[in-house]
Design a binder for these strands. Structure first.
Lengths: 223, 223
DNA sequence: ACCTGAACACCGTTCAAGT
DNA sequence: ACCTGAACACCGTTCAAGT
C-alpha cells in the first residue's frame, strides 16, 4: 500500500534553509549551542551532514542565522517612549542582554559575529532613535550604539562557561583570594580597592555599566 | 653505545606544566589557537594526549594559562606617569589591545576566561592606580576597570574570524549594503545616520571608545 | 606517582557518484 | 539541481594497565 504510506508518513519534509535553522534553534534550546553541529542537525533532519551544505555555507553562518532568529525576540516596545529615552534605553538593552544571558554560548559566538539581519537592524535603529531623542549628536550616537551592544554581548558571553561544573564559583573564589592576597607593596591599588572590585549584584553592575556608557557617549565628541 | 645515546639525544625532556604551556604558546604563535589542542600538544611533546591530563585539568584551563603567559608582555611602564594619567591609560590599554589583536582567537577565548594570574593582577593594579591619579572615586574606578578591559578584549575578539577568507570584508560589505538599503520608513534612524555608523578608522574608534569610557566612569556615581 | 595505549564518542568539510 | 555515502583529517576525555 504505497499510496497510504505516502500520505500517512510524510516523515521527511524537504530540506530548506529555514527548516535547518528551525532544527538548529530547537537543538540549541534543548541541548545548548555546543550540540548544534552539522552532524547532529543532519541526524535530526534524517539525512547526512553533506546535505546541509546545499543550504548553509558553514557552521559559522549557521550560528549567525540562529542569532538573527533569536533577535526577533528583543522587546522594542519601550523604544517608542522617547520622552523617557534614558529609561527606554535601559529597557531595550536589558531585553537584549536577558536574551543572551539565556543562551550564553550563543552570546559567546555573537562576540565575533557581525550581524546584518533585519532583527539586528531594527535593534540598532531603536537605539539610535532613543539617543537622538536624548539630543545626542549623530556621530557619537552611531559609534556609541556599537559599544552599548558590544558591552551587553560581552557581559553575557562572560558567563558562557559558568554552567559547567562549579566553574563560576571557583573562578570567583580564586579571584577573591588573589585580591585578598594582594600585598600592599606589590599591588598597592588592588590592595586598597579590595572589596570594591567584586562588589555589587550582576544587575546593579549592569545598570551602572549602561548608565556609564550613556554618560560617556553624551560627553565625548567625535574626532 | 647506550651511554652515548643517552647523553647526545636527551630528546624527550620530562613533562612539566611549564613545558606544556611553553609548547602551547609555541604552537599558537605558529599555527593559531585553533591548533592548540591536547592531541597536537601531545604530538609536539612526543607523548599521548592522556599524559597531559596529569598537569592540565582541561583545555579551558590551558587557554587561560596561555593568556596569563601572554599578559606578561603588556607594557605597564606608562602607568608610572601619574601626571598624564589619561594618556597613560590610553597607552596601557593600547598595549593590552595590541597584544590581543595579534592573537584574535585568544581574545575570543579571553572573553569568557576569568583570569586571576599575576600578570592580570598587575594590569588591573596599574589601571586602578591611573584612575586614582585622575581623582576617580574608588568605587566607580573598580567597576570601571572591568569595563575598560572588557571593551578592549571584546574589540579584539570581534576580529577573531576576520582572517578566514575575506570574511571581514564580506561582512563589512553586507552591513554597508544593509544600511544603505534601510528605508526611511522601516528604519528611519538607520537611514538618517547612514555613513556615521561605519565611519572612522579602527584606531580612531578605539581611542574614542576608551575616552568615552573614561568620561563615563568619571561621570557616573556608584549606586 | 607518573605515564600510556586504546577506546569512546564525537567533530567540519569535501567530493565523486547517484537521482 | 539536489542529495548522499564515504572518506579525510581531525577533536576532548577517560580508564585500565603498565613502569
Amino acid at each position: 500500500m504505497p499510496a497510504l504510506s505516502r500520505r500517512e508518513r510524510p516523515a521527511k519534509p524537504a530540506l530548506t534553509r529555514e527548516g535547518i535553522i528551525d532544527a538548529a534553534v530547537r537543538v540549541m534550546e534543548s541541548d545548548g549551542l555546543q550540540r548544534v553541529t552539522m552532524r547532529r542537525l543532519a541526524q535530526e533532519l534524517d539525512t547526512g551532514p553533506a546535505s546541509l551544505y546545499v543550504y548553509v555555507a558553514n557552521s559559522y553562518e549557521l550560528h549567525a542565522a540562529i542569532l538573527d532568529r533569536l533577535l526577533a525576540q528583543v522587546d522594542l516596545t519601550a523604544a517608542k517612549d522617547a520622552a523617557d529615552w534614558r529609561e527606554a534605553l535601559h529597557e531595550v538593552l536589558g531585553s537584549y542582554t536577558d536574551l543572551l544571558f539565556a543562551h550564553p554560548s550563543l552570546a559567546h559566538s555573537a562576540v565575533h559575529t557581525h550581524p546584518d539581519g533585519p532583527h539586528y537592524l531594527a535593534l540598532v535603529d531603536s537605539l539610535l532613535g532613543l539617543l537622538a531623542a536624548g539630543q545626542v549628536p549623530a556621530g557619537q550616537a552611531a559609534w556609541g550604539v556599537d559599544l552599548l551592544l558590544q558591552t551587553a554581548t560581552a557581559t553575557a558571553a562572560e558567563h558562557a562557561n559558568d554552567s559547567k561544573d562549579g566553574n563560576a564559583e571557583a573562578a570567583f573564589r580564586r579571584l577573591n583570594e588573589a585580591v585578598d592576597n594582594a600585598s600592599a607593596q606589590q599591588f598597592p591599588n588592588l590592595h586598597a580597592h579590595g572589596v570594591d572590585l567584586l562588589s555589587g549584584t550582576p544587575s546593579e553592575r549592569r545598570r551602572w555599566a549602561f548608565d556609564m556608557l550613556i554618560n560617556g557617549i553624551i560627553a565625548t565628541a567625535r574626532p
